[in-house]
Structures are given as structure tokens and as C-alpha cells.
């Protein structure tokens, strides 16, 4: 008898592939974490050895992946019901829940330890808090209990540039808080635009998204309100020590487009949206992704200008 015959009776799902474990870490979310954390580290006014930058960013990304695995372990019952998430490794039965938990906990420990070695204890503590915030505060508590879930939970996604900054400088400063605030204020309109055209998913899963608890009209008003506040904040950053001409031009253009999109969403009714299959909401959702990428890209561009002495600041 070979081991093949021994295992023949087991379902195929009993043997996950390497790719399944990678999927547990939410690689698409990780890419955003890598980019914003990298910008946070590179715009800091402290030069860091390239290898230390690489290592710090790598383990910030691993920490984000670990929190993703913990989230998938906890949310497997919700993910199973939602169309968007049903194919994730745990709800699809490719990875056992216990494995996701073990991977999440193991990588959390590893990432925090390695960030402490590569950067400093403050950055490692902040990463540990971010993992805790996403896995426990957001996934286990807020997500299923309040329509403000993604407003407060958005903080978890906003920490990476701050961790990057702290990894470079060793402390939190106004600029780090502003980068945090930019992602924090961006998250609600981004997710609510998605929730508008995914409403059935969230209501079937029993997740109290604003669209489910307060309806589409209230969500549309909330999107506009947050976008106005976001625009003010985003433009304000242009005049701090990390801002510059590239960022100012980018922020002006992006926020004008985002405000126009939010205004268009606010003016529509559910009937309008259903008539064109939520075309405006989908467009604004895609725009929101570009919005964040361009803002952080512009911060990096201005930091490059400063490092070459081309731009010396507003004063």
C-alpha cells in the first residue's frame, strides 16, 4: 500500500497548494500596504540603508498578510455567503481554519520580531498594534456590530505609512499622522462605493454595512461628506514638509475628480443606479484606488525632488 492509496479517500481540499497559503495573506491588500509603507519610509527626513528599507517593508507586508490570514480564519462563515469572497481558501475548503489561524499567528510573531530587529521597537510595537486592531477590533468586534465598522476599522489600513515613517525616524510626527489620516478618511467613501453595488452580499452575510442598516440614500450622503473632509485634508498635506508642487497639482486634480464623483453618487437614486448597473458607483470605486496611489506617488515624487535639491520647501 502506498501513501497515495492511503490518502485517496480524502477530499482534494485536504492538500492545499502553496498558492492557497499565499492567498490567505491577501496579496492585493499587501501591495497597497507595501506601497504606502514604502512612501512613509522614503519621505521621512532620515536616510536609511536600502537593505534596511527593503527588510522593514517586507516584514510590514508580512504583518499585513498575517492579519489577513487571521481575518480569513475568523470570517470564514461570512466569506462563504458572500459572492466576492466565497472562493477564498478557507470558505472554499482548500485550507483548514486551524491552519489559517496558525499561519496568521506565526507570521504575526515573525513580522513583529523582524521589524524590531530591522528598524526599531516603536515600529514593531505599532505593527503589532495594527495586526491586533485589524484581527480583533475590526474583524472580531466592529465588523459584525456597527455600521461604522469600516470607518473605525479603516485605521488598520491607515497605519502602514505611519509604521514606515516610525521605522525610519523612530518616532511619530505630524507628517506621519497626516498620512495616516489621508488613508483613514479615504477608506469610508472607497468601501461605501463598493458596498452600494455589493449590497446583497453584505445583507445576506448579516454584516451591518451602512447600505444595509441605513439604506442607499444615507450612504450616498455619507460618501459625499467624507469626500469633502478628505479633500480638505489631502490639500492641506501639500503645505506640510512632505508636500510639494507635484503633490499639490496631483491633489488638486484628484480631489476635483473625486468630489465630482461623490457629488454624482449623492444625486443618484437607487433606481438610477440599477438602470445603468451602478456605473457611476463602480467608476468612483475604481477612481478611489487611483486616487490613493497617485497621492502617495506624488509624495514620493516631491521627496525625490527634495533629495536632488530641486525643491526646497514652501518657505
Amino acid at each position: 500500500m502506498t501513501d497515495v492509496s492511503l490518502h485517496r479517500s480524502l477530499p482534494r481540499e485536504a492538500e492545499p497548494t502553496f498558492r492557497d497559503y499565499v492567498d490567505l495573506l491577501k496579496p492585493r491588500v499587501m501591495s497597497l500596504v507595501v506601497f504606502t509603507a514604502l512612501v512613509g519610509m522614503l519621505v521621512a527626513p532620515v536616510p536609511t540603508h536600502p537593505f534596511l528599507v527593503f527588510t522593514a517593508i517586507l516584514f510590514i507586508a508580512v504583518g499585513a498578510g498575517a492579519s489577513g490570514a487571521l481575518n480569513m480564519w475568523w470570517d470564514a462563515d461570512i466569506d462563504e455567503v458572500m459572492r466576492r469572497t466565497a472562493k477564498r481558501p478557507v470558505p472554499a475548503g482548500r485550507v483548514a481554519p486551524g491552519e489559517a489561524l496558525a499561519l496568521g499567528l506565526g507570521l504575526s510573531l515573525l513580522s513583529v520580531m523582524m521589524l524590531a530587529l530591522a528598524a526599531n521597537l516603536a515600529a514593531a510595537a505599532l505593527l503589532a498594534f495594527t495586526i491586533f486592531f485589524y484581527a480583533v477590533i475590526y474583524s472580531m468586534w466592529l465588523k459584525r456590530s456597527t455600521p461604522q465598522n469600516i470607518v473605525i476599522g479603516g485605521a488598520a489600513g491607515a497605519f502602514p505609512p505611519m509604521i514606515g515613517w516610525v521605522a525610519a525616524t523612530g518616532s511619530v510626527s505630524l507628517e506621519a499622522v497626516l498620512m495616516f489620516a489621508l488613508i483613514f478618511m479615504w477608506t469610508p467613501p472607497h468601501f461605501w462605493a463598493l458596498a452600494l453595488f455589493m449590497k446583497d452580499d453584505y445583507s445576506k452575510a448579516g454584516v451591518p454595512m451602512l447600505t444595509v442598516t441605513h439604506g442607499h440614500d444615507a450612504t450616498r450622503r455619507h460618501i459625499l461628506a467624507y469626500t469633502v473632509a478628505l479633500a480638505a485634508l489631502a490639500l492641506g498635506i501639500a503645505f506640510t514638509s512632505i508636500g510639494g508642487p507635484v503633490y499639490l497639482a496631483t491633489a488638486l486634480a484628484c480631489n476635483a475628480l473625486f468630489l465630482r464623483g461623490a457629488w454624482a453618487i449623492q444625486r443618484r437614486t437607487t433606481a438610477d443606479a440599477e438602470a445603468d448597473s451602478y456605473a457611476t458607483e463602480k467608476r468612483v470605486f475604481r477612481l478611489s484606488l487611483t486616487y490613493l496611489f497617485l497621492h502617495f506617488g506624488a509624495l514620493l515624487a516631491d521627496a525625490t525632488l527634495r533629495s536632488f535639491g530641486i525643491w526646497g520647501g514652501w518657505t
Binding site: 492545499p16 497548494t17 502553496f18 537593505f51 517586507l58 530591522a118
Partner: peptide, 23 residues
Amino acid sequence: RRRGRNVGVAVLLAAFAAIVFGL
């Protein structure tokens, strides 16, 4: 599937050792 996983783990371990050395 097992071979794929084992090769993946081996590559990750080698990369981790290289990172710790570089650090």
C-alpha cells in the same frame, strides 16, 4: 501539490536566511 509546497517552503527558508544574514 506537496512538491510545490515543499519547494515553496524551501525557497522561503533560504530567502529568510539570506535576509537575516544581510541584516
